[in-house]
Design a protein around this nucleic acid. Structure first.
Length: 569
RNA sequence: UGUCCUGUGGUGUAAUUGGUAACACGUCUGACUCUGGAUCAGAAGAGUCUAGGUUCGAGCCCUAGCAGGACAACCA
């Protein structure tokens, strides 16, 4: 009862997004017999990124919400760019995000025969013709947005001649680029897409699925809408740039007299400090700025997965960014919030020291190891506890000690007592330095009565720091990732510059740290919180011989903020 | 000089379809705490691109502007 009222207060949700409003109206008016059928239609020519994740969540999520279906369809009309490898990676990513397309895995290439017949129908109606001009000629004759185009000399060929030529195109009589099939619409249309668009081109290329069956291929514009029609999609959700194509799709559907889906456009996702275009992501991979498509700094789904993002966090993110038509740039802080929120509930807490400083507890017996109990997750008692070894020599984080601390520094300093998490209170008695004056070791004393972290006399310490027992510490390679770009909007390049120039030179720091022995058997992709530091996940290349952790995201850090402010002033 | 789309706190998204701007992230306080995490309590921050108009009443309707974006691949 109480929880309920809290939930209704907290989850006071805003109204349905504009697409859902349209759908709800369509259901109400029985427009498609109450049916809701969407599709996610990627081209298998690259890896999916977080922008696609938004689209996937929208399409599959919408179908789920309204008890409908969502197809996975590959728009594979360009054999030159598409590969089976991409088909596989896309399927893996969609599945990983938690969506299921059942038996409904389709390909535009499955419809090539039907599309060919559609083209023939257009020719027979006098609505399409074979054009002999070259690509350049077609382009220059198309005019500009403000100047009408010029009609092709081939425009008034007879239906019979067009039919014959199209048939010959299919049988391979003509070389690439020598002829195209064009829709006969209006060379003076203010909409460029209606100026006799090319709908079929000759391409003597092997297709990843139809192999060498075809040497002519439909253009995307002539395949996409009809594919939606064939699949009896009710709501064809796509991004804004296809808004101007809609009149063309509607024209095809009308002239072909086939089932008409409804296209609705929404604004694609943009993220601060991130580039999202396939071209730029490819550039990053090819010029070696990152190690590959699944580099944890990439906004690709496989990159985010390797970074330690969970499907749940990505779905929550997709929900929070909303759906609208206005162009937007989402603060990556929202993405980071989503993964912290998810991992906070689920990740096991462990201790890891990234930048070790040796501490000798001088009044602790030598050669003794005792086990202390640590809580696996204070947010979830059911996750239990574990034992961690403690001994005379330990490592703490270098940043957790200051010889001459400012007022706001609560951690270890000469004379200041702190708690070693789950262990004892310690006090620093000596600072050992090398010849260069660098601190290399600390001597401390501990209070045996404070075992477990509580002092019987009730005295309080202001700070708790993490540590690792020196002899049982496990070495691990730790990859500290930061944002890939220094500039909030890396797409906005200044004169004569390139977005590559905005890359953060410190986006990756590789260090060797220590972690609890308990992590020896940690499995790839498993996620942990290193207490006080952040969330880390085991890299897929990690092994018993060499443990590798990726930092997914840091914890929120008030102290870091204070420092930043002091430096700023 | 064209056509289409979009303008609401720093960033996103809402506003029960004309009733006096809400939620999230971020920011800032404070409480609590064996993570300077989490949690909890609170604050600041927009008067809705501009100007007219309709109306008792406009972020929502009308008119005219302004600003931003998309469109000229045999790419998708």
């Amino acid at each position: 009862m109480e929880t309920n009222s809290i939930e209704t207060r907290k989850d006071k949700k805003s109204g349905p997004n504009f697409i859902h409003q349209i759908i709800e109206e369509d259901i109400r008016t029985n427009k498609y017999g109450g049916r809701v059928h969407t599709r996610f239609p990627p081209e298998p020519n690259g890896y999916l990124h977080i922008g696609h994740a938004k689209s996937i969540c929208l399409n599959f999520g919408t179908a789920e919400k309204y008890n409908g279906l969502c197809n996975l369809r590959f728009d594979d009309t360009n054999p030159a760019k598409e590969e089976t490898e991409y088909v596989e990676s896309i399927k893996e990513d969609v599945r990983w995000l938690g969506f299921d397309w059942g038996e409904r895995e389709y390909y535009a290439s499955d419809y090539f025969e039907r599309l060919y017949e559609y083209a023939v129908k257009l020719i027979k109606k006098g609505k399409a013709y074979i054009c002999d001009m070259s690509a350049e000629e077609i382009s220059t004759n198309r005019g500009t947005p403000s100047k009408p185009g010029i009609e092709s000399p081939s425009r008034n060929r007879s239906v019979d001649e067009n039919l014959t030529l199209f048939e010959q195109m299919r049988t391979g009589k003509f070389p690439d680029g020598s002829k195209v099939l064009r829709a006969k619409i209006d060379m003076a249309s203010p909409n460029m897409h209606l100026r006799d668009p090319v709908i079929y081109r000759i391409l003597h290329a092997e297709h990843h699925r139809t192999e060498n069956k075809w040497c002519i291929y439909p253009m995307y514009d002539f395949a996409h809408g009809q594919s939606d029609s064939i699949e009896r999609i009710t709501h064809s959700i796509c991004t804004l740039e296809f808004e101007v194509h809609r009149p063309l799709y509607d024209w095809f559907i009308r002239e072909l007299e086939i089932y008409a889906p409804q296209q609705i456009e929404f604004a694609r996702l943009n993220l601060t400090y991130t580039v999202m275009s396939k071209r730029k992501l490819l550039d990053l991979v090819q010029n070696g700025s990152v190690k590959g498509w699944d580099d944890p700094r990439m906004p690709t789904i496989c990159g985010l997965r390797r970074r330690g993002y969970t499907p749940e966090s990505l779905r929550a993110f997709s929900e929070k960014v909303g759906v609208a038509k206005r162009e937007n740039v989402i603060d990556v802080a929202l993405l980071e919030h989503c993964i912290r929120e998810d991992l906070n509930k689920r990740a096991i807490r462990v201790m890891g020291v990234l930048n070790p400083l040796k501490v000798i507890i001088t009044n602790y017996p030598e050669g003794v190891t005792e086990n202390l109990t640590a809580i696996n997750n204070p947010e979830d008692e059911s996750m239990g506890t574990r034992q961690i070894p403690f001994s005379r020599d330990i490592y703490i984080e270098k940043e957790d000690f200051m010889e001459n601390p400012p007022k706001q520094f609560f951690r270890l300093s000469p004379g200041n007592e702190v708690r070693l998490r789950y262990a004892y209170f310690i006090k620093c008695t000596d600072v050992v330095k090398n010849q260069n004056g660098e601190i290399i070791e600390l001597h401390c004393t501990y209070d045996p009565a404070s075992k477990g972290g509580k002092s019987p006399d009730g005295r309080v310490v202001k700070s708790t720091i993490h540590w690792i027992s020196a002899h049982s510490a496990l070495k691990a390679e730790i990859l500290l990732y930061d944002r890939l770009f220094l500039k909030e909007a890396p797409d906005e390049v200044e004169e004569g510059k390139n977005f590559i120039g905005y890359i953060n030179p410190d986006s990756l720091k590789i260090i060797t740290g220590f972690v609890e022995p308990w992590l020896h058997d940690a499995k790839p992709e498993s996620k942990y919180q290193f207490e006080r530091l952040g969330y880390f996940c085991v890299d897929k290349d990690s092994s018993h011989e060499k443990l590798i952790f990726n930092r997914t995201v840091t914890l929120k850090d008030t102290w870091a903020k204070i420092i930043k402010k002091r430096i700023g002033k």
